[in-house]
Simulated scan of single mutants.
Amino acid sequence: MDLEDIYENVENDDIKDITGPQTQNHSQDGGKDGKCRGRRCLVLMTVCLGLICVLLLVFITLQHITITAERDLLKSYKNTVEEFNHTIISLQDNYTDLRSEKDQLKNKFSSLSQKKLELETELRKLYELGKDRFFISSELKSWSESRQYCRDRGADLVIINTKEKQQFISSLVKERVWIGLSDIETEGIMKWVDNSPLKQG
């Protein structure tokens, strides 16, 4: 028996009209609904997967940007650290050089201080010697004429009885000059003009 025959045998036309087609439509709608739900789920799953892929792509891109930025920052820090290290090494070298220079200057200062003391002592000695007045004539004369020239002016030829006095007189004259030493009285015995003997050559 066909489904149509069953429906024809039913007496109540209203029931037939109401229930027959509804049952058939209901089963057809149920299949359509299942198909629609399946399609909707598939579309929804595809959209969700697409969104997840987009989010993953954004996340990966952000991670790449962040890693690149961190790598650049790390490079910058490394360069800065290297520059600081070079600066520190340079400053240490400069410090060592300055300490060495300071020590050299200290030694030079000590040496100059010592020379200053020596020069002050020498100056005092020369000052004492300078109390005697010396006259150096530019005229060419013999020893006797030179002595007479000095005596006419209330002086005499110079007597050199200390090393300091000899150095002082040597610093004053550049050419040969007469001094108050001779062997006029006794040949071979040198005496000063004040008759004191020559103690050192």
Rank of each mutant, 00 (worst) to 15 (best):
M1T: 08
M1I: 05
D2A: 08
L3G: 02
I6Y: 12
Y7E: 06
E8W: 11
D13C: 03
D13A: 13
D13P: 06
D14A: 15
I18R: 03
T19V: 14
T19D: 11
T19Q: 08
G20N: 06
P21F: 03
P21A: 05
H26S: 15
H26I: 13
D29N: 09
G30D: 04
G31K: 15
K32G: 12
G34P: 00
G34K: 07
C36Q: 15
R37T: 10
G38T: 09
R39D: 15
R39T: 12
L42N: 13
V47C: 05
C48E: 06
C48R: 03
L51Q: 04
C53F: 11
V54G: 00
L55K: 01
L55V: 10
L55H: 10
L55W: 09
L62Q: 08
I67Q: 03
T68D: 13
T68I: 02
E70W: 05
E70S: 07
E70R: 10
D72E: 14
L73H: 07
K75E: 08
S76L: 08
Y77S: 11
Y77D: 14
N79D: 14
N79I: 05
V81Q: 08
E82Q: 11
E83W: 02
H86P: 00
H86N: 10
T87Q: 10
T87C: 04
I89W: 11
D93A: 03
N94K: 12
D97R: 15
D97H: 08
L98Q: 10
L98C: 08
R99E: 14
R99D: 14
K102E: 09
D103Q: 10
K106W: 10
F109S: 14
S110N: 14
S110M: 10
Q114I: 12
Q114Y: 04
Q114C: 02
K116N: 15
L117K: 14
L117I: 13
E118T: 12
E120L: 11
E122Y: 09
L123K: 15
R124G: 06
K125V: 12
L126V: 13
E128K: 14
L129R: 04
G130H: 07
F135L: 06
I136W: 00
S137F: 01
S137G: 12
S138H: 07
E139M: 06
S144E: 15
E145T: 04
S146V: 02
R147S: 12
Q148E: 12
C150N: 00
R151M: 13
R153T: 09
R153V: 09
G154A: 03
A155Y: 08
D156E: 07
L157M: 01
L157E: 01
V158C: 02
V158I: 15
I159E: 01
I159L: 02
I160L: 15
I160C: 00
N161M: 05
T162W: 00
E164P: 01
Q166H: 07
F168Y: 12
S171V: 02
V173G: 01
K174E: 15
K174P: 00
K174D: 14
R176S: 14
V177C: 12
V177I: 14
G180L: 05
L181N: 02
E185Y: 01
T186C: 04
I189P: 01
I189Q: 11
M190S: 06
M190T: 02
M190G: 07
D194C: 02
N195T: 05
S196V: 03
S196Q: 12
L198P: 02
K199C: 01
G201R: 06
